[in-house]
Design a protein around this nucleic acid. Structure first.
Ligand SMILES: [Mn+2]
Ligand SMILES: [Mn+2]
Ligand SMILES: [Zn+2]
Ligand SMILES: [Zn+2]
Lengths: 145, 145
DNA sequence: TTGTAAATGAGACTCTATATCATTATTTTA
DNA sequence: TAAAATAATGATATAGAGTCTCATTTACAA
C-alpha cells in the first residue's frame, strides 16, 4: 500500500494544488491515531507537537482529506463534526451506545450484497453507505439491571 | 392507530409537562407534510398559516418530538439539521444522490436479521439504526453519459 | 378563582465553520 | 538564479445554527 503522504500529494497535484508543510503535518497527525476526533482535538495534538497551524488551515485541509476519500466524516450528536482516517483501513460501520455514548466499530460483509439488491430495486448506482446502529452496550445494560 | 396529538399529549403529561397551543400547532404542521424539512421551513409553514410561534419554541418542541420518537432527525450535509415525521410510518432508510442531492426513501426488511446478528456478535442490545446509502440516481447517470 | 409552576417570546449569546484579505510561500518562467 | 505568477497561510471578521436568559404570559390544579 502506498504511503498516505504520497497519495495525498498526488491528489493535490491532480487538483492543481500545492503540497505544503502545513498540509503534510496535518495529514501525518490525522494518521497517527486511530480514533474519532474533532477539529479542536486535532489542533491540540498539533500544538503538542510544537506546531502552530491556524484553525483555518486545519479546516481547509480536513475538507481536502475528506474530498480525497482518505478521511471520513463521523456524525456524533455533539454539535460539531468528527473525523476518522479511512485510507488503508477496511470499511466499517459504527455501533453507538445510547448509555455511555461509546462508539464501537464493526465490519459487515453482508451489506455488500444488500447494496447490490437495493441498487437494482431503486435504479441507483451505489457508491457507498453509512450505517450507524444504536442501542446499549454490555456494560450499560449491566449497570441498569 | 391513535392520533398524533393524543400520543404527544400523553408523552408530555408523562414528563410532567403541559400541552400548549404552540406545541399542538407545531405537531400538526409537522405531520401535515411527508418530507424532510428544516427549522426555517417549518417556521415558514407556520407563518403561512398565520401563526407566529417563536423560533425558541419551535426548537424546543422539535426536541420534544424527537425525544418522544414521533419525529426523526435526518442528517443532510447542509449545515443544519433536518427532520421528518416518523409516527405512523413504517421504518425506512435513505438513498442520497450525490448528483442532484435528492433523497429517496426505501424500505429494507433484511436489516432486521442483520441487526440481530450484529447485536449477538458485539454483545449489544440494538434499539435501531440509521442507514444512508449514497450514489447516483437514474437521471443523474443519464445526463453524464 | 387563585396560586403556582411551566411555557413563551424577544433578543442576547455561544459556538462551529466559513469568508476575507494582506502577507508569505511555492512553483513556473525567463 | 531571479523575477513573476499563482496559491496557501494566518489573523480576524463574519455568518449561521442553535441555546440561554429572563420578563411576561399561560396552563393547570387546588
Ligand atoms: Mn470508525
Ligand atoms: Mn425519510
Ligand atoms: Zn454503553
Ligand atoms: Zn440525482
Amino acid at each position: 500500500m502506498r504511503p498516505e503522504s504520497e497519495v495525498f500529494r498526488e491528489f493535490l497535484i491532480h487538483k492543481g494544488m500545492r503540497s505544503t508543510p502545513e498540509r503534510e503535518e496535518i495529514l501525518a497527525e490525522v494518521f497517527a491515531h486511530h480514533d474519532h476526533f474533532d477539529v479542536e482535538e486535532l489542533i491540540m495534538r498539533l500544538r503538542r507537537r510544537g506546531l502552530r497551524i491556524s484553525r483555518a488551515s486545519v479546516y481547509r485541509t480536513l475538507a481536502l482529506l475528506v474530498e480525497s476519500g482518505m478521511v471520513g466524516e463521523v456524525y456524533i450528536e455533539d454539535g460539531h463534526m468528527h473525523y476518522e482516517h479511512i485510507y488503508g483501513h477496511e470499511h466499517h460501520c459504527h455501533l453507538r451506545c445510547l448509555g455511555c455514548r461509546k462508539l464501537i466499530e464493526f465490519r459487515n460483509g453482508s451489506l455488500k450484497e444488500m447494496e447490490k439488491r437495493i441498487g437494482q430495486e431503486n435504479d441507483f448506482e451505489i457508491i457507498g453507505h453509512k450505517l450507524e446502529i444504536y442501542g446499549y452496550c454490555a456494560a450499560c445494560r449491566g449497570e441498569e439491571s
